[in-house]
Design a protein around this nucleic acid. Structure first.
Length: 494
RNA sequence: UGCGGAAUAGAGCAGCCUGGUAGCUCGUUAGGUUCAUAACCUAAAGGUCGUAGGUUCAAAUCCUGCUUCCGCAACCA
């Protein structure tokens, strides 16, 4: 029985160094997981690497390492990168692990025993220099390009077409956003062809062997996709059933594999299908996809210095609607970090502390009355909406954008309250203190609720306010009344 | 060439499904203001909604052609 909610990122191909595209996928799941933890729910988050394949083997050879040594090194690098951004997963996937290999071979045998794998023949124009088949007949004859045929295994995808169609018709919410659902439907309408799921070992040695035919290696898609269940213990039924089925976060480029191939593999092995696919867009830089092959990755170290880890985390989530593409440009990042975090979030904190210091010597007087004004109620309502958005996010990761919007609404409204009621001008000290306490209380609560995103800052704010840590334990407790006078500037502008 | 997505103010986007005075954030300009991080408040300038047609009393919105960009189309993963 499923007892734990489970969300995955794609596993990344370590072709090159990690970049902002990898970070984005993992960040989405990280925030979801942290939100769940905040509200004391049990959730599980996996991410990791897809370590097999020709390019990895070639890169290893070029550097004089064995493939395994090479991926060990890359895995460490990716882990370091993600940890730098406070990404906290429950399990780090490596497709070279023994457990994963066993799961993949188990799936292969199930597919075969159920009659979904057959041996066939692949033929085409083969480029010897690129070690790959070409899509079309080359224009010019060349001694490096030859017609070639070889044995290989096929997956009988075509046999599952009707079953998949039926599933999609019965599950209109299976893919988020809707346009990606439509795209998946389009794949189905166009008809499904069987596809090749193995490579001859003499051409690709760096992969998982076909269980009963050591001349062949299982090609990437079965290998990689099975990570979603091997990561939670499959084929150990007892273990993995606590987690599976889960939800997958993925980029729009790999929609077909997750929307068609993966459900098909699960159907063919009679395993439950995923609950949902959440498909995000891409970060573009100068209108090009930020990718491993183009080499236009952004120098993140520089940006961390300027905008902090939290600033980048915030921008990645706030900068685009989930599902859309976005421009990863420093001027836009700067606009968001300054506009939201420095000018609104950081600034109101400083404004409140400024008056507390000026009028009360850094300590709010005790015994604050409960503010009962209309405006105070409105602000409480806005805060409630933020709270509910966290609660919603835990079950519906696709509501990420709304969560961020709700947060900034609260902060803007604190600013408006402060402004409209001219808190700094209130003569009556009791009244002024009551208003400050009220606003600081809302601010503290909003800080706790945004801590899944602003991990470092939220902790810093709570510690400054005198709490031992940032958690729901201190969401409702009385605010400490003594504040040290050295006021912190959150997100200082550079 | 097929399938899908996109083109709206200097930048980033919403609005389109369910036609009816074009909106948000940032930036720019002018004024105000200080409790505050050149913050904050008020106001202004700035768009023939990619393009050419069609439907309609009325089109950013519906339909068609075209152009440009981004994915998938291919054994790159």
């Amino acid at each position: 029985m499923k007892t734990i909610k489970y969300l995955t990122t794609p596993i990344y191909y370590p072709n090159n160094t990690p970049h902002v595209g990898h970070l984005y996928s993992s960040l989405l799941v990280d925030v979801w997981k942290k939100a769940a933890k905040l509200l004391n729910r049990k959730h599980y988050f996996t991410t990791g690497l897809d370590e097999h394949g020709q390019k990895v083997a070639q890169a290893a050879a070029a550097r004089g390492y064995s493939a395994q040594e090479h991926v060990n090194h890359l895995s460490a690098k990716f882990i370091e990168f993600f940890q730098h951004f406070n990404i906290e997963w429950d399990y780090w996937v490596r497709t070279t692990s023994v457990e994963h290999k066993m799961a993949v071979q188990n799936i292969w045998m199930k597919l075969k025993n159920n009659g979904y794998i057959y041996k066939g023949n692949y033929a085409g124009w083969y480029s010897i220099s690129d070690e790959t088949y070409l899509a079309e007949k080359p224009e010019q004859e060349s001694e490096h390009i030859v017609w070639r045929e070889e044995d290989c295994y096929f997956f009988k995808l075509s046999a599952l077409e009707d079953q998949l169609k039926k599933f999609y018709e019965e599950h209109p919410d299976f893919v988020y956003p809707n346009k990606r659902y439509n795209e998946a439907m389009g794949f189905l309408q166009n008809g499904l062809k069987d596809f090749v799921i193995s490579r001859p070992k003499n051409r690709l040695y760096w992969g998982i062997e076909v269980p009963d035919d050591s001349d062949h290696v299982i090609y990437v898609w079965i290998d990689a996709l099975v990570n979603y269940i091997s990561a939670v213990g499959y084929p150990n039924e007892e273990e993995y059933k606590h987690y599976w089925p889960g939800k997958h976060v993925l980029g729009k480029d790999i929609l077909k594999f997750h929307a068609i191939y993966w459900p098909a593999i699960l159907m063919a092995t009679q395993l439950p299908l995923p609950e949902k696919l959440i498909v995000h867009g891409w970060w573009m830089r100068d209108d090009a996809k930020i990718s491993k092959s183009l080499g236009n990755a952004v120098p993140l170290d520089d940006l961390i210095t300027k905008y902090q880890v939290d600033g980048i985390r915030y921008f990645l989530l706030r900068g685009i609607e989930l599902g859309e593409d976005g421009q990863f440009r420093e001027d836009i990042l700067k606009g968001v970090v300054h506009g939201d975090l420095a000018n609104k979030y950081g600034n109101i904190f400083l404004r409140m502390l400024g008056i507390i210091e000026l009028r009360f010597g850094g300590a709010l007087p005790n015994g604050m009355p409960n503010l009962k004004t209309k405006e105070a109620d409105a602000l409480r309502k806005t805060l409630d909406r933020l709270y509910y958005s966290v609660d919603t996010l835990i079950d519906e990761p696709e509501t990420m954008s709304e969560y961020l919007n709700r947060f900034i609404e609260v902060i803007v409204q604190i600013n408006d309250y402060f402004q409209n009621n001219k808190i700094w001008e209130i003569e009556d000290k009791v009244e002024q203190a009551a208003n400050l306490y009220f606003l600081m209380d809302i601010f503290r609560k909003a800080t706790v609720l945004i801590s899944p995103v602003l991990t470092n800052s939220a902790n810093a704010v709570m510690k400054f306010l005198g709490f031992p840590e940032c958690s729901m334990k201190y969401y409702d407790s009385n605010l400490p009344l003594e504040y040290i006078s050295n006021r912190p500037r959150l997100f200082p502008k550079i």
